[in-house]
Simulated scan of single mutants.
Amino acid sequence: MSTPTEDVKPRIRRTHIALYVKNPFEAVGWYKDVLGMIETARGERWVFLSFGTKHHDIALIQADPTMEGAQARGEINLQHYGLEIDGTMDDLRRLYGMLLRKNVPIVKITDHKVGYGLYFTDPDGHRFEFFLETIHDDEEGRRVLGEHNAPSDPFDLQPL
C-alpha cells in the first residue's frame, strides 16, 4: 500500500538562490571579490556563480530596468541569505575585517545563542549573513532558539 501524497516531504540535498540585480555583469565582480565565488555560466541576462563545489549556488538575473525600488522587488522581499562558515570566531573576525576593508555595508552583528551572525549587503541591497554556528546538536539548537525566542541580540565583534 502506498503512502498518501500529503505525507511526502522533500529531502533537501542543497540550496541555491537566484537574485534580481540591476546588472549581473557588473555585480559579478563583487560576488567574486567579497564572497570568493567563481563564475560558472553566463547568458544574455544572467550569470551563475559557485562556491566551488556545485555548478551554481547563486544566480544573478537582470531585473526589468523599467521597474525600480519596491516595484522591482515587491513590498515583501527576501530578508537575508545565510552562509554558514566553516571555522572559528577568529575566522568570523577575519571576514568582518575583510568586509570593512572592501567598504561592504555592515547591517548588524548578532548573537543568536546558537551562533553568531555578521550581516552585510551587496551592491543591489540584498542582505547576506556569514553565520558561525556554536551549537552543533540540532535538538539542543531547537531548545535554545525556543527558550530565547530566536534571538538576534547585538554582539560586539572585533575585526581582524
Rank of each mutant, 00 (worst) to 15 (best):
67 M>V: 06
11 R>Y: 09
69 G>C: 14
122 D>K: 12
134 T>D: 03
127 R>P: 00
65 P>T: 07
116 Y>N: 08
74 G>T: 06
149 N>G: 06
47 V>E: 07
146 G>M: 05
8 V>K: 03
88 T>E: 05
81 Y>R: 00
79 Q>D: 14
119 Y>V: 02
112 H>W: 06
125 G>Y: 02
127 R>Q: 09
62 Q>H: 13
71 Q>A: 14
78 L>N: 13
139 E>T: 11
101 R>L: 09
62 Q>R: 12
26 E>G: 04
98 M>S: 14
32 K>M: 07
126 H>A: 04
33 D>E: 14
86 D>K: 06
104 V>R: 03
101 R>F: 01
28 V>L: 11
14 R>E: 15
152 S>W: 05
35 L>C: 03
29 G>H: 13
53 T>H: 09
42 R>I: 07
54 K>W: 13
24 P>F: 14
73 R>F: 12
151 P>R: 13
92 L>I: 04
103 N>H: 07
43 G>S: 01
65 P>V: 06
91 D>F: 01
32 K>S: 04
146 G>C: 04
99 L>Y: 10
123 P>Q: 12
31 Y>V: 12
108 K>V: 03
46 W>N: 07
81 Y>K: 00
19 L>V: 08
98 M>Y: 08
45 R>N: 15
66 T>G: 08
27 A>D: 05
127 R>E: 10
13 R>P: 00
106 I>G: 04
73 R>Y: 11
17 I>E: 02
82 G>S: 11
21 V>W: 08
18 A>V: 09
95 L>A: 07
135 I>F: 03
90 D>H: 07
126 H>F: 02
42 R>L: 05
26 E>Y: 08
137 D>V: 12
97 G>S: 04
155 F>Q: 02
6 E>R: 06
106 I>T: 06
114 V>P: 08
10 P>I: 10
35 L>R: 01
34 V>E: 07
9 K>N: 08
18 A>I: 03
145 L>W: 04
45 R>C: 10
43 G>R: 11
151 P>M: 12
140 E>C: 12
33 D>P: 05
54 K>H: 13
58 I>P: 03
42 R>F: 04
125 G>E: 05
3 T>C: 09
144 V>E: 14
109 I>S: 05
110 T>D: 02
80 H>W: 01
99 L>F: 09
13 R>N: 11
136 H>W: 11
138 D>G: 01
103 N>W: 04
134 T>N: 00
7 D>V: 09
76 I>W: 03
26 E>Q: 11
15 T>A: 15
37 M>H: 03
97 G>T: 08
141 G>V: 01
61 I>R: 00
138 D>P: 07
3 T>R: 09
137 D>G: 09
141 G>D: 01
98 M>N: 11
98 M>L: 12
8 V>E: 02
101 R>C: 05
19 L>G: 01
23 N>R: 10
62 Q>S: 08
78 L>V: 12
152 S>I: 01
134 T>V: 04
50 S>E: 13
70 A>L: 14
145 L>V: 01
101 R>E: 15
119 Y>C: 02
48 F>H: 14
28 V>M: 09
45 R>E: 15
85 I>A: 07
77 N>A: 02
144 V>L: 09
4 P>E: 14
86 D>P: 00
53 T>M: 15
78 L>S: 13
36 G>W: 10
62 Q>D: 14
153 D>K: 10
57 D>L: 15
12 I>T: 14
132 L>R: 00
134 T>W: 00
41 A>I: 03
156 D>F: 05
151 P>L: 08
96 Y>C: 11
